[in-house]
Design a protein around this nucleic acid. Structure first.
Lengths: 259, 259
DNA sequence: GGGCCGCGTCAAGGAAACGTCAAGAACCCG
DNA sequence: CGGGTTCTTGACGTTTCCTTGACGCGGCCC
C-alpha cells in the first residue's frame, strides 16, 4: 500500500515514519460463490500486488480465515451455507481486520446493516478495478496506522489536562474533579492569564441562563481551589478580581501552539 | 438577596452543552456550500446526537478545522475558494481524523482520487439518512479503535483473554461470560486505562442505534463486575466516570511528568 | 473609620446519575 | 416443541454531585 498510494501524492504523508517494508505481500481472502467473478477479483487484486485466497462458501470462508489469518477480507453477501452477514458477525467476534462487503443488491437497508455489523466498506456491483483497489488500499492503510492520536492537551504551569481522557494532573498528582469542575478548569486554562468575568464563565461553563448566578460560580471555584490546594499547597492558581471575575495566574497567554 | 435573579429563571434551564469544554458529544465539521443541503446535513447529524459546525468554503473549513479540532469531517468536493481536494490534502498533512467526502459527481475517477488522497469514505448524492449515519458511525468507531492487532489473546493485569476460543481467565480462574459480556470486556481491555464514553461502548459493542441506552450498558457492566468480583474479590477493575462512562483501571497510559 | 457590597465558608436540600433486584421477552439448543 | 440461557425492560434504593441558603470576614469608597 505504501507503493501505489504514495506514488502520485504530491505531499509527504504526515509522520508516517513506519518503514516496515516487509508487508508487501498481504493476504486477501475473497469470499464469492460465482466462479467467474471470483476469478476476476483474484486477478485484479493479485495484479495489485496482493496474495489472494478464494472461498466459495461462508463455512469455507471462516475456515480459511482462522487458518490463514488474512489481512483483509472481500466478502460477498450472497454466499451459500453461511451468508455474508453471518460470516461478518463471526469474524467480528474475534477480529477487527478490514472487511469489505460486495453485493449485487444496492438496497440501502443492506448497506446500513453491513456497516452497522462492523463492515469497513460496502460496495455494489458492478465495481471497477481502480475503485476496488483504492478502497482496499485505503482500508489497509487505515488498519496499519495507529488511530489518530488526537491527544488534545492543555498545559498551564504544572497543570496538565488531557481533554480526550478527561484527566487533569497537577505536577504529576492526579486531580479528581467532578464534571462541572473539569469544565470550569478547562475554561480557565484556555484563557490563562486573562481576566474572565463572572458572566463569561457562567455562560461558558453552565450555559445561557446562568449568567447572573455568581454565587454558584463562587462555590465551584471554592471546590476547585480546594482540590488544587490539596495537591499543590501554597500555589495560588485562581486569583480573584474583585468585583469583576477571576484570572488564572502565571505566565500570560502562552504562545499558541501550531494547530 | 443575592439570588434574586436566579429565582426567576426556570428551575433548570436547558443545559446547552455548547461549550467547547463539554466534549461529551463528538463534533462533526460539515463543509458544504449549498445552504439547503448543508442545513439538512446539520439536521440529520445533529439528530443522531452529534454536535455540528458548518463551513461554506474551503478556507473557512480549514479555519474551523484548526480552531475546533472536530472529530470527523463531512466534505463536499465542490466548495468554493478551496475545493474539497485541496481541503482534504491540507487536513491530511496534519491529521488523520476521519474525512467522509460527499459529491454529486459519481465519476469513478473522482472516487479513486478521493480515496487515494486519504479520504475514509466517498458518498455520492443523493444519500439517505440511515446510510449517512451508518457511515459516520462506522468511521468514528474505527477511528476510536486501536489498530487491529492480529493477536489471538489480550492481557490486562491478571486478565487473560483468548480471542480464538472465546475464553477469559482471571489469575488462572475461568470466567464464564456471555457473548455480550465477552465483547464488552474485550472492548474495555483494548482501551485499558482510557476513558470510554457510554456512546462509544454502546455503538462499539451493541452496534449503532443503541447510542443512548445507558441503562442497558449499566446492567451488563454490573453482571461483568459481579463475575470479575467472584474470581478476584476486592480488585476493582471497572471504574465509573460519573456522567461520562467507564474506565478500566490499572496500568494506564502514563502521564508525562516534567522532572 | 464606618457602612456597604462582594467574597469565602459551612451546611443542608434536592436532582441527576448510578447500582441493584426481579420479572418478562427473545433466543438458541436439543 | 419445550427447557434453559441470555438479553432487555421496569421499578426502586443508593451515591454523587449540583444547587441553594445563611453567615462572617474583608476590601473599597466616602
Amino acid at each position: 500500500m505504501v507503493h501505489a498510494a504514495a506514488r502520485d501524492r504530491p505531499h509527504r504523508p504526515p509522520r508516517t515514519g513506519d518503514t516496515r517494508a516487509n508487508r508487501v505481500n498481504e493476504l486477501v481472502l475473497i469470499v464469492e460463490d460465482e466462479p467467474e467473478f471470483s476469478a476476476l477479483l483474484e486477478l485484479w487484486i493479485g495484479q495489485a500486488g496482493y496474495r489472494t485466497v478464494p472461498a466459495g462458501t461462508g463455512r469455507e470462508a471462516l475456515q480459511r480465515f482462522h487458518e490463514l489469518r488474512p489481512d483483509l477480507v472481500v466478502l460477498d453477501v450472497s454466499v451459500p451455507v453461511l451468508d455474508g452477514w453471518q460470516v461478518l458477525e463471526r469474524i467480528r467476534e474475534v477480529s477487527r481486520i478490514p472487511v469489505l462487503m460486495v453485493t449485487a443488491r444496492s438496497a440501502e437497508g443492506d448497506k446500513v446493516r453491513g456497516l452497522r455489523l462492523g463492515a469497513d466498506d460496502y460496495m455494489t456491483k458492478p465495481i471497477g478495478f481502480p475503485e476496488l483497489i483504492a478502497r482496499i488500499e485505503g482500508a489497509l492503510r487505515r488498519a496499519h496506522q495507529p488511530p489518530p492520536s488526537r491527544a488534545r492537551e492543555l498545559r498551564h504551569r504544572a497543570l496538565l489536562i488531557d481533554l480526550d481522557d478527561h484527566r487533569a494532573t497537577l505536577g504529576g498528582g492526579e486531580l479528581r474533579l467532578t464534571p462541572t469542575e473539569f469544565r470550569l478548569l478547562v475554561f480557565l486554562v484556555e484563557r490563562s492569564g486573562q481576566l474572565v468575568t463572572h458572566r463569561q464563565v457562567l455562560t461558558g461553563v453552565w450555559g445561557a441562563g446562568y449568567g447572573t448566578d455568581v454565587h454558584l460560580l463562587r462555590m465551584t471555584i471554592r471546590n476547585l481551589r480546594a482540590k488544587l490546594e490539596a495537591v499543590a499547597p501554597g500555589e495560588a492558581y485562581i486569583a480573584t478580581e474583585y468585583g469583576l471575575g477571576y484570572r488564572l495566574t502565571g505566565p500570560a497567554r502562552p504562545i499558541p501552539e501550531p494547530g
